[in-house]
Design a protein around this nucleic acid. Structure first.
Length: 260
DNA sequence: CACCATGTTTAAAT
DNA sequence: GATTTAAACATGGT
């Protein structure tokens, strides 16, 4: 479920519910051995970088990556019976947060954390994000722009839905060599990524199509091209194929291949 | 039951 | 060296 907006929103929500409180930290399935080390300690800070979530406790920092299936569920204390493959349970007086299915949930040392951060590209949601290194790498590679958008070493936080939507909104063919991207297109892409991710944080889901007053968009109305069969602009067929090991959707009429 | 999915990492192959 | 591919891992919904 999660692209960068999910993780940033989680950082906010966890912070709101749990910050500064002495928490009960447990790992019901025993899949996170360090949980006992954190028992009763306070959460001091939360943070998100790309799709990585960091929980700073008094005694250690926990690094979480949700992967494809990971999910945090929030409930009012005392919360439901722990069942299923629960990895981590955080309990304050008022709330219970349950983590299931992450690819990663570990106590991480400062140097390991720095190493990790060094491998990540610019996160459009970070206030101080600097897109310049991304632009420099894009100019040097002939890889398809659709693959580059998923590369977390270049952009941190974009995922499969955002890449399809961004390319559609900019009218760019996913197979276009990244180096053919004009500077002004890159600038537009960066700006759009920021706006869409920020909107995703606010709405708690990916919505790229215009809002309709007084009504929440249905799931199938929220996106321009991802998982759709026909193009909303030209009514032509949306093509689906595999790019960068994942499914890409594009309208090849509205996102034409063009010469360098 | 079968299939699909908003992800990343590693190692091997090209 | 750059890139692509395959395999592995993790769950829930339809």
């Amino acid at each position: 479920m999660p692209e960068g907006h999910t993780i940033h929103r989680l950082a906010q929500d966890l912070s709101r519910d749990l910050l500064g409180q002495s928490l009960s930290v447990s790992s019901p399935q025993g899949r996170f051995e360090d949980a006992s080390r954190l028992q009763g300690t306070r959460l001091i800070k939360t943070g998100a970088v790309g799709k990585h979530l960091f929980l700073h406790f008094e005694t250690a920092v926990v690094h979480i990556h949700l992967g494809l299936f990971g999910r945090f569920r929030r409930s009012k204390a005392p919360g439901p019976e722990a069942r299923g493959a629960l990895r981590l349970r955080l309990v304050s007086d008022a709330y219970v947060w349950d983590l299931s299915g992450p690819t990663c949930c570990e106590v991480i040392a400062e140097d390991a954390r720095n190493e990790l951060l060094a491998r990540l590209g610019a996160d459009p949601l970070a206030d101080a994000a600097n897109p310049k290194p991304a632009w420099e790498r894009i100019q040097k590679t002939a890889r398809p722009i659709g693959a580059v958008l998923l590369d977390q070493r270049i952009f941190a936080g974009l995922g499969n839905v955002y890449r399809a939507e961004i390319l559609f909104m900019l009218g760019i063919h996913p197979e276009m060599p990244a180096k053919n991207l004009a500077k002004r297109e890159f600038n537009a892409l960066w700006k759009l990524a920021r706006e869409l991710l920020a909107r995703g944080v606010k709405e708690k889901r990916i919505v790229t199509r215009p809002a309709v007053k007084g009504r929440r968009l249905r799931r199938e109305e929220a996106l321009h091209v991802y998982a759709r069969r026909t193009c909303e602009k030209c009514e032509g067929t949306v093509r689906r194929w595999t790019l960068g090991a994942r499914a890409i959707y594009a309208c090849e009429t509205c996102q034409p291949q063009r010469q360098a």
